[in-house]
């Protein structure tokens, strides 16, 4: 049973990363503007992060979906969602009323900071579970 659970989590996380990464990669300028609204980095930092993060998401998504280097992909997923949670938490604490920019230009009103923080925490939980559970070979785990 655990095996199917792991596969499902991999696919869910992988699909979300592929969707989020590709929408951001297609419109880097908009994503850089969205990062800029967090007021955490200089303009050049926003652009460099907006240029590289979508590819990290796409590669992580591909690895999770393909089943290769899954634990490394899970680790990257944990790191990225931790980073998103910290950024969203600081935005919430500073009272910023901004769109989270989580899915690039495709984001709607549902990507407000509060909703995005809850979603990121949930996905961080799934990523952490995946990383921990993959420490034990799935083949030997009892269903």
């Amino acid at each position: 049973m655990q095996r199917y659970g792991v596969i499902a989590i991999r696919w869910v996380l992988g699909a979300i990363f592929l969707y989020a990464g590709s929408t951001k990669a297609l419109d880097v300028a908009t994503f850089a503007t969205a990062i800029g609204r967090y007021a955490m980095l200089p303009e050049l930092g926003n652009m460099v992060l907006a240029s590289t993060l979508p590819y990290a998401e796409i590669y992580t998504g591909l690895l999770l979906c393909s089943g290769r280097w899954v634990r490394s992909a899970a680790l990257l997923s944990v790191l990225m969602y931790s980073m998103f949670c910290v950024a969203l938490l600081t935005a919430a604490l500073r009272g910023l009323s901004i769109d989270c920019g989580c899915f690039g230009a495709a984001a709607g009103a549902w990507s407000s900071v509060g909703v995005a923080l809850l979603r990121s925490l949930a996905l961080l939980g799934l990523s952490s579970y995946l990383f921990v559970v993959l420490a034990v070979p799935v083949a030997t785990a009892k269903d």
Binding site: S51, A73, L76
Partner: peptide, 16 residues
């Protein structure tokens, strides 16, 4: 994981 990060950085910087 480090390989993936380096690959992502190079891809992102090259494309943009």
């Amino acid at each position: 994981a480090l390989v993936v990060v380096i690959l992502a950085v190079f891809s992102g910087l090259a494309v943009n």
